[in-house]
Amino acid sequence: MKHLVVLLTTFLLTYHASAEVATIHAIKSNMPKATKASSASSIPILISGDKKFINQTNAALNLLKSKAPSDYAMVITYIGKIQQHNFSGMAAYETPPTYKVGTTANASVTWYASTIVHDAYHSKLYHDYLYTYKEAVPDEVWTGMDAEMKCLEAQIQTLIHMKAPKMEIDHAISLRGTNWWDLNEDGIYDAEDEKLRDW
């Protein structure tokens, strides 16, 4: 009986690891190679924007790589492109999954890095569901209150790992249980909220 339990445990661990590796390969197979701008730092993510944006993004990714390597590994698995944009948000459904960044890129490098992790977690929720169920991903799986709280917790842990300024950690913690993204306060997150964003 003891041997059966050991064999079953080994099988389950191996199966879980294999499934996770398969998920990573499935996502990465749809991603193009890194651009010249981002390959200078050996970062396997496309970075699109002006010179200041590219430099700030590389600085944030390199900070994650050195101070929060497990978070960095998650980022390069679930984000294929970081693009300068009018406002910030994760387009997990695009090929490659794209983090579109507004003025958030002008924040401190620690805060910007933590938002990259936050949005990579949105993409993780999206792609883990897609890989597991092989069907269209319901919005509530990767957006909305429950998803935001999961992504926020990942962000808080990243800030702690990077030893970010206390005020940044405290600010992230203060967002727990709030729906900061519902800017028109109608109880849903949609294009109307995106139009009101200033980050």
Rank of each mutant, 00 (worst) to 15 (best):
D71M: 10
I45G: 05
D146T: 11
D146A: 15
A164I: 10
N55R: 14
K36M: 15
H85A: 10
T103P: 02
S41P: 02
A107Q: 11
K150F: 06
D119V: 09
P165L: 05
Y99R: 06
M31D: 11
L183G: 09
G144I: 00
D119F: 10
N58C: 14
A120G: 09
I45C: 06
D50Y: 06
Y121M: 13
V109N: 01
M90H: 04
L8P: 11
E20N: 11
S70R: 12
A73Q: 08
M1N: 15
F53K: 04
V137N: 00
E94S: 14
L61F: 05
A68I: 00
V109K: 02
A68G: 03
S41T: 07
K195T: 09
K36R: 15
N184R: 09
Q56L: 10
H85D: 11
P138V: 00
N106C: 07
G49R: 07
I173E: 12
L12N: 06
L183D: 02
T77L: 04
F53Y: 05
E153F: 00
D50W: 08
Y189G: 10
H25G: 05
T178C: 07
S18N: 14
N58K: 13
N184K: 08
M90D: 05
C151V: 06
S38V: 02
L175S: 09
I54Q: 10
T14C: 12
W199Y: 12
D146Y: 12
K28G: 11
Y126Q: 06
N30S: 14
Y112Q: 01
L196T: 05
T35P: 05
E140Y: 13
A154D: 03
W181V: 12
D186C: 03
K33I: 11
M145C: 09
E148V: 03
T10P: 04
I27D: 05
T132R: 15
A113I: 00
S38G: 07
S114H: 00
E185S: 14
T103N: 10
Y121P: 05
A60N: 04
Y133A: 10
A191E: 15
A34T: 07
P32E: 01
M167H: 13
I24P: 03
I169D: 01
H25Y: 09
T115Y: 08
E148C: 04
K52E: 10
A60R: 02
